[in-house]
């Protein structure tokens, strides 16, 4: 009875839940180690590449931006110099015109009014006392005529003076006009100069743009050239049967003459590595990789006609 109870009684396993928790903890710990232990790898290389490519295009664009700025600042001080000059000359013009024009208009009016008045008065006197008074009148007329003549003379003198003044004024006006014309000419010349400067600026900018475009084109060409040089080197490297266990990192240099199409005309050892086995292995590899990869543009072939190939024992 009692033995059967023992036989069927389950084993009370201690702390099985704690065991599970510990197992999970061990794994979390290990994962954390891996995650934080491997993270150091991804930070440093990113900065290198981004910096190189953002810096290259800038020096071409920056001069274009910086040059127009000083040019624009130069014409600006020129304009204020020209503008203050006309206001200095303009105020004298209106002042003499007003003073000259007004007096001659008033004086002739007075002269015209004085003349008819003496003509109307003698007319009724002449009908009643013809002969007696006629003499007196004649005398008076003579006197008047004399007076008139004197007045006329005075007027003529005035008129002459006025005419002289007018002439003088006209002369001054002409002079002013001449000065104005000169100023206008100057302004025109300055405007022309400004236009010339702007044109020169535009030409310079266009030249800078052209230079940038040419530089970009040159960059493309150099990229193409360097790409194909790398391809050539890679092809040669892939054909080298490296002699084993050379000490250090010996370098061998070959000057290779190419034919259009990638065929090899001549291979000369220009600098030996010091290990004949390595030198000959590289030379064999150059001949083995015979149609060398060349850019499809035949204009670039001149860059490849005489190639210098340097091979390092270890990459």
């Amino acid at each position: 009875m009692s033995a059967s109870i023992l036989r069927n009684s389950p084993h009370s396993e201690p702390k099985s839940v704690l065991a599970g928790a510990l197992a999970v903890f061990v794994h979390l710990f290990f994962v954390a180690l891996l995650v934080f232990g491997l993270n150091w790898k991804d930070h440093p290389p990113e900065g290198m590449i981004v910096d190189i490519w953002t810096e290259l295009p800038k020096p071409i664009q920056e001069p274009v931006k910086s040059q127009p700025l000083p040019k624009q600042s130069v014409p600006e001080p020129v304009k204020p110099k020209l503008e203050p000059q006309p206001p200095k000359l303009e105020p004298p013009k209106p002042v003499p015109q007003k003073t000259i024009v007004e007096p001659p208009v008033k004086k002739p009016d007075i002269a015209v009014k004085q003349k008819p008045e003496p003509v109307k008065e003698p007319l009724p006197d002449l009908q009643e006392q013809k002969k007696k008074e006629q003499e007196k009148v004649k005398e008076q007329e003579r006197v008047k005529e004399l007076e008139k003549q004197k007045e006329l003379e005075k007027k003529k003198e005035f008129e002459k003076k006025q005419e002289l003044e007018k002439q003088k004024e006209l002369e001054t006006q002409k002079e002013l006009e001449k000065q104005k014309a000169l100023q206008r000419q100057k302004e025109k010349e300055q405007a022309a100069q400004r236009q010339r400067e702007q044109e020169a600026k535009a030409q310079r900018e266009a030249e800078v743009k052209r230079a940038a475009q040419q530089a970009a084109a040159r960059n493309q060409i150099t990229n193409e050239i360097s790409k194909y040089k790398a391809l050539i080197l890679a092809k040669i490297r892939s054909r080298i049967v490296m002699p084993p266990d050379l000490p250090g990192n010996p370098v061998v240099e070959f000057s290779v003459t190419l034919l259009p199409g990638g065929d090899i005309l001549d291979v000369r050892l220009s600098r030996s590595s010091g290990y004949a086995a390595f030198d000959s292995a590289v030379e064999r590899a150059i001949f083995l990789s015979k149609p060398l990869p060349l850019p499809p543009d035949p204009a670039l072939f001149n860059e490849f006609r005489n190639l210098n190939i340097t091979v390092h024992y270890r990459e």
């Binding site: 396993e13 201690p14 702390k15 099985s16 704690l18 065991a19 599970g20 510990l22 197992a23 999970v24 061990v26 794994h27």
Partner: peptide, 21 residues
């Protein structure tokens, strides 16, 4: 492998406690 590892670690701790007891 993660499942196996979790299970094996669970048994490791369980057997540790059982045998000690």
């Amino acid at each position: 492998l993660v499942m196996i590892s979790l299970l094996s670690w669970w048994y490791i701790f369980r057997k540790l406690f059982v045998i000690r007891y």
